[in-house]
Simulated assay, not measured.
Amino acid sequence: MTRQRILITGASSGLGEEMARRFAAAGRDLALCARRVDRLDALRAELVAENPSISVAVRALDVTEHESVVRVFGELRDELGGLDRVIVNAGLGKGAKIGTGKARANLATAQTNFVGALSQCEAALEIFRDGNSGHLVLVSSISADRGLPGPKAAYSASKAALASLGESLTIELARTPIRVTTLLPGFVETDMSARSGDASRLTASLDSGVSAMVDAIEKEKIRVALPGPTWKVIDTALRFLPNSVTARFL
Rank of each mutant, 00 (worst) to 15 (best):
T182M: 10
D191N: 12
K152C: 05
E172P: 04
R201F: 15
A204P: 01
V214Y: 02
A161P: 05
A199F: 10
A160M: 01
S211W: 03
L206E: 02
S211R: 14
Y155V: 03
R195N: 13
S211P: 00
M213L: 13
A194E: 15
A174K: 13
E189L: 08
A154W: 04
A199H: 10
S211D: 15
A153L: 12
L206M: 13
A199S: 10
R175M: 12
G166S: 09
T181D: 06
T190N: 06
T182E: 04
S208F: 07
R201V: 10
A153G: 09
P177N: 14
E189I: 00
V214I: 12
A174T: 10
A163M: 09
T203W: 06
L173G: 07
R179L: 13
D207N: 11
T170H: 15
A163D: 12
G209E: 08
E189G: 01
G209Y: 11
V180G: 05
V180N: 02
D191C: 02
G209Q: 09
L183V: 07
M213N: 01
F187T: 02
I171F: 14
G197A: 12
R179A: 15
L184Y: 14
L183Y: 06
L162F: 07
T190A: 04
G197N: 08
R201I: 09
D215Q: 13
L148N: 08
G186C: 08
D198G: 07
L165N: 09
T176D: 05
T203I: 07
M213K: 00
I178R: 03
A153T: 15
D191Y: 04
S164D: 07
P177D: 11
L206S: 02
P151K: 13
A216R: 02
L162S: 03
L169E: 08
S164Q: 12
A157D: 00
G150K: 12
P149S: 12
G166R: 07
V188C: 02
A160S: 13
V188R: 02
T181K: 08
L165H: 10
K159E: 00
A174Q: 13
T170Y: 15
P149W: 00
S168T: 15
S196H: 00
M213E: 05
M213S: 02
L162K: 01
M192I: 14
T182C: 11
S200G: 00
I178N: 07
A199I: 06
S168W: 09
D191H: 09
S193N: 14
R201S: 11
S193H: 08
L202I: 04
A199G: 00
M192D: 06
S156D: 08
A163N: 07
I178C: 05
P177I: 11
V214D: 04
S196Y: 01
I171V: 15
S164A: 14
L206A: 06
T190D: 04
G186E: 05
L162T: 04
D191P: 09
D198H: 05
T170L: 12
V210L: 07
